[in-house]
Amino acid sequence: MQIFVKTLTGKTITLEVEPSDTIENVKAKIQDKEGIPPDQQRLIFAGKQLEDGRTLSDYNIQKESTLHLVLR
């Protein structure tokens, strides 16, 4: 499924993921596309910060959901 990741600069990254993918996994995909190390990434969905060990389905993230990427 496709999800979108919006950065603070207003750029939107499109990722191909599975509901069973972990947040860690998603961060690795963002690193592949954008070169941002996962340890600098914070992903936010519905106002919650997403934890590395959880999966997209844990957070009920469905196709075409938009996550927000904050760098630390």
Rank of each mutant, 00 (worst) to 15 (best):
D21A: 07
T9Y: 04
R54L: 07
L56W: 02
V70L: 10
D21F: 09
D52P: 04
R54F: 14
E34T: 08
T22W: 15
D52S: 13
G47I: 11
D58N: 08
T9L: 14
F45W: 11
K29M: 06
T66Y: 08
N60R: 08
P38Y: 05
D21H: 10
D58I: 13
F4R: 04
P37R: 14
K33Q: 05
K33E: 09
K6Q: 11
F4C: 02
K33G: 12
T66I: 09
S65Y: 10
I44Q: 14
A46F: 10
I23L: 12
Q40A: 08
I61C: 01
I30M: 04
A46T: 04
R42L: 07
F45K: 03
E18P: 04
I23R: 01
K11F: 14
L56P: 01
S20T: 11
K27E: 01
T22E: 09
V5T: 03
L56A: 05
F45S: 10
V70T: 15
E51G: 03
G10R: 02
Q2E: 11
Q40E: 12
L15I: 05
V70F: 11
L56T: 04
L43K: 00
Q49I: 08
A46Y: 08
R72P: 13
K48V: 14
K29W: 05
D58P: 01
S20Y: 14
F45E: 03
D39Q: 07
R54E: 03
E18H: 10
L71G: 15
D52K: 06
F45N: 06
Q31P: 03
Q62V: 06
D21Q: 07
L8Q: 10
Y59T: 03
I44T: 12
L71D: 15
F45C: 02
L69T: 03
R42C: 03
I61L: 07
T55Q: 11
V70A: 15
N60L: 14
L8V: 13
R72E: 15
T55I: 14
Q62C: 02
N60V: 04
E16H: 12
L69Y: 02
S57D: 07
R72A: 15
D32T: 10
T66H: 15
T14N: 06
E51K: 03
T66K: 03
Q40M: 09
L67Y: 01
R42N: 14
E24C: 03
Q62D: 08
S20Q: 09
L8P: 11
I61T: 02
I23T: 10
Q49V: 03
T12M: 12
S65I: 04
Q2R: 08
I30V: 14
L15E: 00
R42F: 15
E18D: 12
T55N: 05
L67K: 01
V5N: 00
L56G: 00
R42P: 01
K29Y: 05
V26Q: 00
I23K: 01
I44R: 05
K48D: 13
G47L: 05
V70R: 05
P37C: 03
L8S: 07
P19A: 12
Q31T: 15
S65M: 10
L67P: 01
V70P: 02
K33W: 11
E24F: 06
N25H: 06
I61G: 01
D39N: 05
N60K: 13
V26P: 00
M1N: 06
V70Y: 05
A46G: 11
D39C: 02
S57F: 10
L56Q: 00
Q2W: 10
K6E: 14
T9V: 06
T9H: 08
P37N: 08
I3H: 00
K29I: 06
Y59Q: 09
K27V: 15
R72V: 15
S57Q: 13
K63N: 05
D58S: 04
G47V: 03
Q41A: 14
E18N: 12
K27S: 08
L56I: 12
K48T: 11
I44M: 05
V17L: 13
G53M: 07
G53H: 13
K48R: 06
I36Q: 08
T55L: 11
E16L: 07
V26R: 00
R54S: 06
D39W: 07
M1G: 06
E16R: 06
K48A: 13
P37Y: 13
H68A: 14
R42I: 15
G53K: 09
K27Y: 14
V70M: 09
P37I: 12
Q2P: 05
I30C: 01
T55V: 14
T55S: 07
L50A: 03
G35Y: 08
E16T: 03
R72Q: 14
E24T: 09
A28S: 08
P38H: 09
D39P: 04
D58V: 06
L69W: 03
K33V: 13
N25I: 08
P19V: 09
E16Q: 14
E51C: 02
S20R: 11
L56R: 00
Q49W: 05
K6L: 15
K29T: 07
N25P: 01
K63G: 13
Q62M: 04
Q31E: 06
E24R: 07
E64K: 03
R72T: 14
I36K: 05
K48W: 14
S65D: 15
L50Y: 01
T9A: 11
L15W: 01
E64L: 04
D32L: 08
P38V: 08
G53Q: 12
L69G: 01
I13V: 08
I61N: 00
K63V: 04
Q2C: 02
Q2D: 12
I44A: 11
Q49A: 10
V26Y: 00
Q49T: 11
A46L: 06
S20P: 10
K11D: 15
H68W: 03
T22N: 13
D39F: 13
M1S: 09
P38F: 15
E64G: 05
E34S: 10
M1F: 04
T14P: 08
Q41C: 02
V26H: 00
I3M: 09
H68Q: 14
I23A: 10
V26L: 05
Q2V: 05
D32N: 07
T9I: 05
Y59S: 06
H68C: 03
A46I: 11
G35H: 12
G53T: 15
G10S: 14
N60Y: 07
G10N: 14
E34G: 02
L67N: 01
V5K: 00
